[in-house]
Design a protein around this nucleic acid. Structure first.
Lengths: 351, 351
DNA sequence: TTGAAAGCGCTACCAA
DNA sequence: TTGGTAGCGCTTTCAA
């Protein structure tokens, strides 16, 4: 059956009326101005190699495009192409250290060198599956989701069914069906535990941030130190601390009754806070208590005694970008787990 | 003229062949499964109020969508609609403090409440105009670009011509044609300068980070302190410092010959670094030298003497989101400049 | 209450 | 070497 298209006034015309000011130029406008077809415009602007366009035509098209300020429409392009090169990354929702943000930038840079478009998408305040749906709507070729429990196996499925060729988590946890770039926080705790036990400490406090949102990091660190103490006579005691002087003072005040001779803080900042409070309360560091942080911040070295810490090592963004690229090229491959985080004790004067 | 569409094998079929495994479900698939038209599917899934769909049909469509794991295609949708609700934000390229990242999150959250989709787009290593083009390809309704010199008036024009209804910069500089959310770093320096002059200091060193990428922040802070010293007898001397102990030790070693009795560091971290180095070199703080930072970090209060600082105040994300929304609703409005950054000296023991 | 179909901007196939 | 045109997935108008 042949349909005879009737002449209709498209709804768009109304919108155009309101915004007639400056309609956004399309490739058709460029074609019109250059006196060629839209196909030719596409060939020229994309440097299509399969087709040879004469130099004069090429020039006319370029000039027309420049004159109009033409910029191609990414959505239309990827709709037509049936796929995109967009890699979706989570925008970190908690303030993140310089180490991690450096790593992030490196990864982004490396992905762009592999011709991916990196987009960060904040999903604050969405449940995991809602977030996955929202990501899926953008039809990314790959998703690098936080490995912090946000993403569920259902979420992974939603993403894959909507065309994501690779789903990777990056963080302390892994998820079925997704590749995992595993930042195993337990190693951090373990490493600290071993160091403190080596120093002959037998009562180890573990500072856990009182603020919400850190559980996925702090819990495995605690587990790691527990694992290190397993089979020894040492006790491991979690201690909640908020990042304020008052909270630290309170903890320091009841220190004697805790009977601990060591403490591993969530990170160097909490460690510094507690160290100062202990000193103000008259507790000798490292004599009576060994204090250890994590992250190996420069600032920790400024204290007296210099703060012992756990140095964290992240691989180069280059390596990770290649991992992502490989996963994209082989969508059917079995999910792999890549340990990402190296941890090493850096003994200084506080332990 | 009536075209009789010939039956062609669409190129897509080849692609589909390769990926036949699991073609991504479209609204047509949902329609087929539910035994209705694509229009009906759209009505149901979008809860279109103008059209009443019977409950049974509604249910059938929902079930079909769930069964297929259907997720709408954002690009197709916004292509059809002729506009999107995407707000493009720059992904910060330098590690950013907790204050700023909190502010960022708040803004993102508030924008989402206004029904915008917030997307961060890293533009590391692109020139300003390339970045603007790359942003424009995504056809965002609004762009919140860094006000750090990346964006040029040309860039603003490219964005507007490709349909962005609002372009705002957020940072220390403003750009012609764009609204500005101005974080006037000069105020920070000015504030520190006034405080140090009040304390009777007459030779003020200003620590400028030796690392690249901080110029847009550090230069105006220096200018601000110069402005404060204008017309007084005080000298202002820029001092380059890298964020490492060695660099600080070197600076401290040549301190006596500098003849300065005060120093304002780029931020609290640089201040703490230098303070420690000065103390190690036997310089009395605040007796011989007053040391002041910026950012009012908790860690600065742990030093002895407690570090004086400049507290920075950022408005709530809510307020800013409304600013963005207003700019979008009134695209023709004259660009406005909104001062964003409040600065206040917090005197402690180091000055 | 439901369906048919146009068309958003773009690219790639085929024909000229 | 260039042009015509189908069709990516979606929404919406108009007709039934």
């Amino acid at each position: 059956m042949v349909q005879i298209p009737e002449r209709r006034i498209p709804e768009q015309s109304a919108r155009r009326d309101a915004e007639r000011v400056r309609p956004v130029p399309t490739s058709a406008d460029v074609a019109r101005l250059a006196g060629v077809s839209r196909a030719t415009v596409s060939y020229v602007l994309n440097n299509t190699t399969a087709v040879r366009i004469s130099a004069p035509t090429r020039r006319r098209v370029q000039e027309a495009a420049d004159a109009l300020g033409y910029v191609p429409h990414a959505a239309a392009r990827s709709l037509r192409a049936g796929h995109s090169r967009m890699v979706l990354m989570p925008a970190p929702s908690v303030p993140v250290g310089a180490l991690y943000s450096h790593f992030f930038n490196e990864l982004q840079w490396a992905l762009r060198r592999l011709d991916y478009t990196v987009v960060q998408f904040g999903s604050l305040g969405m449940s995991g599956d809602d977030a996955a749906r929202a990501w899926a709507e953008l039809r990314p070729v790959a998703v690098l989701a936080p490995g912090d429990g946000t993403l569920t196996p259902r979420g992974v499925d939603v993403l894959k069914r909507s065309g994501a060729r690779a789903v990777l988590t990056i963080g302390p946890e892994r998820v079925d069906g997704a590749h995992a770039l595993l930042m195993d926080q337990r190693a951090v705790g373990h490493c600290a535990g071993v160091h403190l036990l080596d120093r002959g400490r037998t009562g180890i406090g573990v500072v856990v941030p009182g603020e919400p949102g850190f559980e996925t990091f702090s819990a495995p660190r605690l587990a790691g130190i527990r694992a290190a103490a397993e089979g020894t006579a040492a006790r491991v005691v979690p201690l909640e601390l908020r990042y304020e002087e008052r909270s630290a003072d309170r903890l320091a005040a009841r220190w004697p009754e805790l009977g601990l001779d060591a403490v591993f803080a969530y990170n160097d900042e909490y460690a510094m806070l507690l160290l100062r409070a202990l000193q103000d309360a008259g507790v000798d560091v490292p004599g009576a208590v060994a204090v250890m942080g994590a992250g190996d911040l420069l600032l920790g070295r400024l204290l007296r005694p210099r703060l012992s810490s756990v140095r964290l090592d992240l691989p180069s963004g280059q390596v990770l970008a290649e991992l992502v690229d490989r996963a994209v090229r082989d969508p059917a491959g079995t999910p792999e787990v890549h340990p990402l985080l190296g941890a090493e004790a850096v003994p200084r004067d506080s332990t």
